[in-house]
Design a protein around this nucleic acid. Structure first.
Length: 281
DNA sequence: GTAATCGGACGGTCAACCAA
DNA sequence: TGGTTGACCGTCCGATTACA
């Protein structure tokens, strides 16, 4: 499979911290028209509004995966404990991995000029168009005139009451070094059904929303400090003071017991112990 | 059928480079 | 001095393998 083909995977990269993430959104209608990490598949298009194939958006990564996800090479999220660790019942082991220091002083050869093009147009004009899926603007969505245009995928999905959205202007763009600002945002989060097994290859998908079984609910969402699947625990350090079963609106984690004690095998959760970066040299 | 493993594509960061 | 470039390093997709 080519890398381009790999990128066509409709379920690749469901960015957990992204409110649009299909991990956390009711999958009302699957439209494989979304970008790599776009939420485009979450909302139905009105008839006649199905857009042409947009360019794939980029996969988004967390800045720092937890040690467990890192070892398992699985998707992590910014919350601590991360969703995966919560699910496996190893929330207390969910800590940021250490990143090794970058090499400095590496000499570089002369820069290659873009053939026949001036430098000014080098990266700037080949930069992908703003990462906006070519999705039709949701009709009738009021956008605060003092705010930047709302990306279509942040607008109310077609068919949703527009009053659900736009209660707050877009959050200010944080500047480097700024502390993450809590900004009131609301998004639809699924209320899961009782867990009754799962299907699918990826264990990360276990217990995730099943279509047509969810009720929209609203939770305040503050990035970084806590994940969208949990309620703010009033911890300034962003750590979770409660056991997962108390804060997660999702079903209690259902780690696979590997022993008669019912304890999750941390090794299994962690996955491989090698795989390159594991050496942390 | 499900879970674990892992190769490698991809993304983000940032220091060296370079033109203005 | 600020923009550009590209190497480094981390993330995690998804195919493959192992297991129940």
């Amino acid at each position: 499979m080519s890398s381009a083909e790999r990128n066509q995977s409709p379920d690749a990269d469901n960015d957990i911290q992204d409110p649009q993430s299909s991990d956390l959104q009711p999958q009302m209608t699957v439209h494989p028209v979304g970008g790599y990490s776009s939420p485009m598949h979450m909302y139905p298009f009105a008839p006649g509004l199905v857009p042409p194939q947009p360019p794939r958006s980029k996969r988004r990564q967390v800045k720092n995966a937890c040690t467990n996800c890192q070892k398992a090479c699985k998707k992590c999220d910014d919350a601590r404990p991360c969703l995966r660790c919560v699910k496996y019942g190893i929330a207390e082991e969910c800590v940021d991995s250490q990143r090794k220091e970058r090499k400095k002083g590496v000499k570089r050869g002369p820069y290659k000029k873009r053939d026949g093009k001036d430098r000014a147009g080098s990266s700037a004009d080949h930069v992908d168009a703003p990462e906006q899926p070519s999705m039709p603007i949701a009709q009738g969505v009021p956008q605060p005139s003092s705010s930047p245009p709302m990306p279509p995928y942040l607008a109310a999905p077609v068919g949703y009451a527009t009053s659900f959205y736009g209660q707050f202007p877009a959050p200010p763009t944080p500047k480097p070094g700024d502390a993450p600002a809590y900004y009131p945002q609301f998004y639809i989060t699924p209320i899961p059904p009782p867990h009754n097994g799962h299907s699918g290859q990826d264990p990360e998908q276990q217990g995730y929303p099943q279509p047509a079984q969810f009720y929209p609910a609203f939770l305040p969402y503050a990035p970084q400090a806590y994940g969208p699947y949990m309620v703010h625990p009033h911890r300034p350090d962003g750590q979770m003071p409660m056991p997962p079963s108390q804060y997660s609106p999702f079903p209690p984690p259902f780690p696979k017991p590997t022993s008669s004690t019912g304890q999750v095998d941390a090794a299994n959760v962690n996955g491989r112990n090698d795989h390159g970066q594991g050496d942390q040299n």
